[in-house]
């Protein structure tokens, strides 16, 4: 039993960082192996942007250039849809027993979730870059200056971070990839019941109210404001901070508790 006196009872904290980095690298290696999947994920929101910008031809009454209204909405929508990718990845690892193997290793168990977060945030940042690039080509401009621009990117990523932890929690609750489809179907109405494509003023009263209260709409409105485009309202930065933080305050501890409950 002499070994037990030299070995700590729990994983040393010093491993937490390196393990998290290993788990992040795992996702990056997966990207390199599957470039097509990565590209499809990046192209999908671009397709939506083109579809709504040209085919659907909405944007009457947004009070300015529609592309300046649409691009911030699409950025927020892309962040919201990121929830699906998180859920799929987490349920896949759970279902295949990969998470079990990680949990049986002398590694910092939380690194499984940290690595997932880091990789998903990286992918979302990449998605923002691609979408703003395409938006720029379509004539969208950020009029608010560099500080406001960075603030807008920060709000979008904060919203994505909240979606990420909701995704992890839902994946841990669902457990099986089959149930992800049910959630995917629910993500769509939540994404589209927002002001991403049209102003709430153009909608029937009750729908407008739902849309206005959608956290995604708060982020989109604040981002429009920071980009100096139509549909922005100056007070919304606070709402766009408060909503994701409130969601995180609920779902981050829930997800962590649910992860710990795997051993029950």
């Amino acid at each position: 039993m002499s070994a037990s006196t030299t070995v700590p009872a729990t994983t040393p904290l010093s491993h937490a960082l390196s393990d998290s980095w290993t788990m992040t690298r795992r996702e990056l290696a997966r990207w390199r192996r599957q470039p097509v999947t990565v590209v499809v994920n990046l192209v999908f929101p671009v397709m939506l942007l083109l579809m709504f910008g040209y085919l659907v031809g909405g944007g009457r009454g947004v009070g300015g250039e529609y592309v300046d209204y649409l691009v911030p909405g699409m950025l927020a929508l892309t962040m919201a849809f990121g929830l699906e990718g998180t859920m799929i990845a987490v349920t896949r690892d759970l279902d295949k027993g990969v998470v079990d193997r990680f949990r049986s290793l002398p590694m910092a168990n939380g690194a499984v979730l940290v690595g997932r977060s880091a990789a998903d945030m990286l992918q979302s940042a990449l998605g923002l870059a691609v979408l703003t690039g395409v938006g720029y080509a379509l004539g969208w401009r950020a009029h608010g200056g560099p500080g406001a621009f960075l603030g807008a990117v920060g709000l979008l990523l904060l919203f994505r971070f909240a979606m990420l932890w909701i995704g992890i929690f839902l994946a841990l609750v669902a457990g099986k990839p089959e149930l992800v489809q049910a959630v995917q179907i629910l993500v769509w109405p939540v994404g589209f019941l927002s002001n991403a494509f049209a102003t709430p003023d153009s909608m029937p009263g009750w729908l407008g109210t739902v849309v206005q209260w959608n956290p995604m709409s708060q982020t989109a409105t604040a981002v429009r404001d920071l980009f100096g485009g139509p549909g922005g309202e100056s007070g919304h930065v606070w709402a766009a901070l408060a909503w994701p933080l409130a969601l995180l305050a609920v779902f981050f501890p829930l997800a962590v508790a649910r992860f710990a409950r795997l051993s029950r």
């Binding site: 795992r26 290696a29 997966r30 192996r33 599957q34 295949k96 027993g97 990969v98 079990d100 193997r101």
Partner: peptide, 9 residues
Amino acid sequence: QHAALDEEL
């Protein structure tokens, strides 16, 4: 019971 590996890697 299931091969706990990364299929893509």
